[in-house]
Design a protein around this nucleic acid. Structure first.
Lengths: 180, 180
DNA sequence: ATCCCCGTGCCTGTTTTTTGGGCACGGGGA
DNA sequence: TCCCCGTGCCCAAAAAACAGGCACGGGGAT
């Protein structure tokens, strides 16, 4: 029911990922860090890429469950910023690795879920066609996603909140125009 | 090699102990908190008192290993204060329970170890008889121990650092007199 | 080019740990 | 008085972790 070893593996991996690039982390490193047998790793995970896949997906899930009721574009941004900043070194190392696609996929899905939840509630009962709503969701999802990517490409040197503030402003003005 | 369940039990117990009195914590509460089977608890620990015994002893060990080289009465006091304050609610609940004796025994031993290590190094090569040194250690050990007890009896309302500052002053003046 | 080291992924079998179910006991509340 | 609940313990089954070994492939050193 409670798989502490599995959790320990993930924690060790996240810890190591906060220290160095993914390419410099081996299965051996992970199992030695949490003092378990190497076979135990393979009992729980297919291989290292599978661990990456689960880790990234799980972190995104945590983010979503942590903010069940996003009720503004600002809160929406805060949620994403929170996750990215909390493990910014790990995020950086995953992004600049062969697993970039895994990260981008989950980030896109995560942004999509949050934005979609918020916008669907926002437009409930208002005169908008499903197609228009979907397009709106896609637009804002991509804006959200792109802001993170842009920030990562810039070496995370800029204030990510800045990117999001601009995105939020655009979203708000766009929404207000729609609602008129 | 790595027993995560055992650790999880201790963490859950410490967490609960920071929330409510020992008398209101059952084995069931603990296993439910970390989502394991009740039998798994009994696999690792004889019963709840055994868990208390190990927990308290372990915390004291952590404290000692965290401060391997105490080189002044102040540092000695800081070490003890650190442990007590970090889990002050848990300490309070253990102290005000049927396991008070367990806590006092380990606290006394812990104070003894730290004080002894420090004083033996301090008086190395100086003219003092082993009997006098032992008496000195016992005196300071008890002063250290008693300060914590006194603070706990006062409902932890006062600043524990105050108690220790006074103890430290006495220790220092006593030591200086001896060294002259 | 060859050898060698190292990490990988997987296999076998064994041991340890966790689980689910059930039992008798005792204390406390209805 | 009965009943509920937590306890401590038992058993057998399932899950998990272990030790040890093997073939493969990449990369560095000679």
């Amino acid at each position: 029911m409670a798989n502490f070893t599995r959790r320990a593996i993930k924690e060790a991996f996240l810890k190591l990922l906060n220290q160095r690039p993914l390419s410099q982390i081996t299965v051996k490193d992970i199992v030695e860090d949490c003092g378990i047998n190497r076979n135990s790793f393979y009992y729980h995970f297919e291989d290292l890429p599978a661990l990456v896949e689960e880790m990234v997906g799980e972190q995104m899930q945590n983010l979503i469950q942590k903010h069940p009721t996003v009720s503004s574009v600002e809160e929406c941004a805060d949620a994403v910023i929170e996750l990215v900043m909390e493990n910014r070194r790990a995020v950086y190392h995953i992004y600049n690795s062969l697993s970039r696609d895994v990260f981008e996929r989950h980030l896109m899905d995560g942004c999509g879920y949050i934005v979609s939840t918020y916008l669907k509630a926002e437009f409930a009962g208002k005169p908008i066609t499903p197609a228009d709503l979907d397009a709106l969701i896609r637009l804002h999802k991509c804006a959200c996603f792109g802001s993170v990517i842009d920030w990562l490409n810039g070496g995370m040197k800029d204030d990510i909140a800045d990117y999001f503030r601009r995105v939020c402003a655009l979203q708000k003005s766009g929404l207000e125009r729609l609602e008129r």
